[in-house]
Amino acid sequence: MKPFLEGHEDPLTVLVAREMDAVSDVDVVAWAGCHAAPPSYAEDSDYQELLRSNPRNPLALGKAHGHLTSLVARVFADFDPSSAQAGEMARRLFLRRIRSYLHSDLEPLQICRMIPPIEERYDYPYWLGNLYDVCDWMDARTTRDQALHLRDAIEQILSDNGESQLPDATE
């Protein structure tokens, strides 16, 4: 399975993905490692910190989100993570993430844990569909076999949003 972040994404996209829990700190560090940064932030201290982070070092991982946030705040000072622009980025990321559930070994909680941050930041958007109910009582022990209804809900959300259920080129 290819990683969700491939390296070509800009820091704004990565921050939106991280803040909605679509990706983890490990993913953020991995993104930095394969991202070709433009001159505008290639030498930025926080970007450099991300580049130097060891993904197997929990201490370094614990700081990754902070480095990414600082990078965006400094280099993209006009970006509002709660704006309509960010909301549309979140919607695209969300749909891509749930589609990847159909074609990967993602655990149910990796989908369900996106709901609280999305609800909070984007004011209960319609594109979450009925995941609010579907994810009831899904925790870290819930297996894919126990969550067949999650698969059904994802297929419905993709259909409602006019999205294909087929894997895209990154999956």
Partner: peptide, 14 residues
């Protein structure tokens, strides 16, 4: 997390 303790899942509503 800041102390380097890895979580298998961060806080979320269940």
């Amino acid at each position: 997390k800041a102390a380097g303790i890895p979580f298998t899942a961060p806080p979320t509503i269940v």
